[in-house]
Lab assay of single mutants.
Amino acid sequence: RSRTAFTAQQLEALEKTFQKTHYPDVVMRERLAMCTNLPEARVQVWFKNRRAKFRK
């Protein structure tokens, strides 16, 4: 699988949600996936990586 390049709009939506909660539930992730045209699995991995970045 190749690396996913996120658009500015996708990142904005993801970051906005991350500010609200670092652990979105499956419903919220699926809604984000639909809004951003990304698979739910990519949204889940983005949050996992973003939490790791946040802890540093």
Rank of each mutant, 00 (worst) to 15 (best):
R1C: 13
S2Y: 12
S2V: 10
S2Q: 11
S2C: 10
R3A: 14
R3D: 15
T4Y: 06
T4A: 07
T7Y: 01
T7K: 01
A8M: 09
A8H: 06
A8Q: 12
A8S: 15
Q9S: 10
Q9G: 11
Q9A: 09
Q10T: 01
E12P: 00
E12Y: 05
L14R: 01
E15N: 03
E15L: 06
K16I: 07
T17K: 06
T17F: 10
T17H: 04
F18D: 00
F18R: 01
Q19N: 09
Q19Y: 08
K20H: 10
K20A: 11
K20I: 14
T21L: 07
H22D: 02
H22C: 04
H22P: 11
H22N: 06
H22I: 06
Y23H: 07
P24S: 03
P24A: 00
P24C: 03
P24I: 04
D25Q: 00
D25I: 05
D25G: 06
D25H: 01
D25R: 04
V26W: 14
V26Y: 09
V26F: 03
M28Y: 02
M28K: 01
M28C: 12
R29T: 12
E30K: 02
R31N: 11
R31G: 04
L32G: 04
A33E: 00
A33H: 03
A33N: 01
A33C: 08
M34T: 13
M34V: 14
C35H: 14
C35M: 14
T36S: 04
N37P: 01
N37K: 11
N37G: 15
N37R: 08
P39I: 01
E40T: 10
E40M: 11
E40G: 04
A41L: 07
A41K: 12
A41S: 12
A41C: 11
A41Y: 12
A41V: 07
R42Y: 08
V43Q: 00
V43T: 00
Q44V: 07
Q44M: 09
Q44D: 10
V45W: 12
V45A: 12
V45R: 11
W46H: 10
F47E: 00
F47Q: 00
N49Q: 14
N49D: 15
N49M: 10
R50C: 01
R50L: 06
R51V: 03
A52K: 08
A52D: 09
K53T: 12
K53S: 12
K53P: 05
K53C: 08
F54I: 12
F54L: 13
